[in-house]
Each structure stands twice: as C-alpha cells, then as structure tokens.
C-alpha cells in the first residue's frame, strides 16, 4: 500500500514536472509567436526577411526598462511608450532603408536588413553600453499554485499566453474584416494588381511594418519579464528563433506563426529539460532544417509554383 502510494507520488512528480515544462514551453512559444507575427506579416507583404526585427525587440525592452527604472513611470504607460517608440522606429527603418530597394534583388534587401540589425545593435551598445541590465518583470514575480503547490504558474506565463491569444484574435479580425487588413492581403497576393485596384501599396507596407514593430515591443517587454537580462544582443537570438518559428508554421500565415511559435517553444524547453541545455539551440535549428527540407512551405503554408 505504501509502496503503491510512493510510486504514485513519484509518477505524479514526473507528470507535474512534465506539465510545468509544457507550460513554460507554451509561454516561451507565445513570445516566439508574437515575434514571428512581425516576421510573417512583413514577409508576406514585402517579400523580405526583416533581419532587424529582433533588434527592434531589444529597443522596445530598453525603452520600457528606462521608463520604469529611471523615470519611475507606471507599467502600462511605459509599455505603451515602448510600443509607440518601436512603431516609429519600424516605420522609420522601412522608409529609410527598405523603401529605396523595393525593386532590388532579394540578396540586396537581405544584406541591407542585416546591416540595419547591426546598426541597431551597435547603436544600443554605444548608447546603453553592453553591461547587462536587470529587467524587473512588468507583472511582478508572483505565481498561482495548483495541486497543493506542486505546480505553480507564474503571472508572467499567464500574462504572456493571454497577450498572445488576444493579439492573435485581434490580428485575425483585423486582416479578415477591416479595409486595411484586406488591403494587406491584397498586397501580399499581387502588389501590381492591388495598386490597379486603388490600394496605396506604400502606405500598406508602412502599416505592416508599424504593426510588426508594435508587436515586437510587446514581445520585448514580455521576453525580458521572463528572461530578465537585457543586453544589446538580447533580441538577436529570439529574433532568429522566431523567424524559425514563422518558417516552421508557414511564412505569411498568421495561424502558422501561432502554431510554429508554440511548437518551437515547447521543443526548445523539452530539449533543455530532457536532452541537453547546451544543445537546445542546435536542436531547434535542426528542426528548422528538417521542416524546410520535408515541407518547404511550412506546416500551414501554401506551396507556390515557380512560374517561368
């Protein structure tokens, strides 16, 4: 009887640790999904890989950090300030660096985007030094306990997952129902035809960058609430992984970003917990390569035939 009880407890422990890994995976995945949305929308419309997106995340986190810690602003206004700053930055980057290259080969656009990413990282390093800042969570460090305290879910996780769900629903409504959203979908389908129908393509692309960058700010704040070290290079790795997530789910597809992000987050946390901490990044990238080779358009993407 005692042995059976012990065994149950042991299995229950395993089950609980599995559950808590799963929950933190979903939470990390939600952050990836929010970042991936920025990539996927920009890629869908401008057909370019915005490498600087990850660094916009970092800028958003820094703005929020300074607003809270240096100017003692309350949390919600500082997050809104970060969103506004990133939106402006995203539109500015698009106008300055990407717009002149609208008809250039994709290699040139990609290299420009990498240059932009480097520019942001190095400016941040000069402005704010490379010393890591300790970001205090915007929702506090408390947690909700379940199963007599054997499973605890932190407020960070709850807020992150909720934010992800809200953003997804709003975006789905926005792209499906509103005039601007329809214009976006039209542009991503065929830019020339959209222009002929009277859609302002340039404004639509700017709008996409604005939305993507605003989401990047939210993601930056959430990311640094969970992983509190803030450095000029904070955004680059999550940025690359979120792009991986976007590709995984099928680039250009909003539900794909959600699916890819969540799966990638869970894979990463499980790889860390059950395989090896050192190899988790390698495993995540291996997943990307395998997905691209087996299903080049991603899980929910549409395979487009190349036309001659």
């Amino acid at each position: 009887m005692l042995a059976a009880l012990l065994r149950f407890n042991f299995l229950g422990g395993l089950y609980m640790s599995f559950l808590s890994h799963l929950i933190s995976g979903v939470s990390l995945g939600s952050i990836y999904a929010i970042i991936a949305l920025g990539y996927t929308m920009v890629y869908g419309i401008a057909k370019m890989l915005n490498f600087a997106h990850g660094d916009v995340i970092m800028v958003g986190a820094y703005v929020c950090f300074f607003a809270v810690s240096r100017y003692d602003m309350p949390v919600i206004p500082s997050v809104l300030l970060a969103v506004a700053a990133c939106t402006a930055l995203g539109v500015f980057i698009e106008r300055l660096a990407y717009k002149p290259l609208r008809s250039a080969p994709s290699l040139a656009v990609l290299i420009t985007a990498i240059g932009m990413s480097y520019f942001l990282q190095n400016s941040a390093q000069l402005l704010w030094t490379s010393n890591p800042k300790v970001f205090s969570s915007v929702v506090g460090n408390g947690s909700v306990k379940f199963f007599d305290g054997r499973l605890s879910i932190s407020y960070n996780v709850i807020v992150t997952v909720l934010a992800c769900i809200i953003i997804m629903s709003v975006l789905t409504w926005f792209t499906g129902r509103t005039k601007m959203g329809k214009a976006m979908r039209a542009c991503s389908e065929d830019k020339d035809a959209a222009q002929l129908m009277g859609i302002n393509v340039n404004a639509t692309i700017s709008m996409t960058f604005a939305i993507g960058s605003a989401l990047a700010a939210v993601a930056g704040v959430l990311l640094c609430s969970v992983y509190p070290t803030l450095m000029p290079t904070t955004g680059s790795m999550p940025g690359i992984k979120a792009f991986t997530a976007a590709v995984f789910g099928g680039i250009g597809s909003i539900p794909g970003a959600l699916l890819g992000g969540t799966l990638l987050g869970v894979i990463e946390i499980f790889a860390k917990a059950y395989i090896s901490t050192q190899l988790s990044d390698a495993i995540v990238f291996l997943v990307l390569i395998i997905v691209l080779l087996v299903k080049p358009a991603g899980l929910l993407g549409k395979q487009v035939q190349e036309k001659v």
């Binding site: 290259l101 040139a108 240059g115 520019f119 190095n122 000069l126």
Partner: peptide, 22 residues
Amino acid sequence: DYRMLVYAVVLIIVMIVTNNAR
C-alpha cells in the same frame, strides 16, 4: 568603438546606392 557601427552604415549605404534606380 564605432567600427561595427560604421560598417553597418556603410553596408546599408552601399546596398542602397548600388541597387536603387535613382
């Protein structure tokens, strides 16, 4: 200190100048 920053700016400018029709 400014090396990488200058590289980044030069990279962007070179790409825009060599690929923009204007």
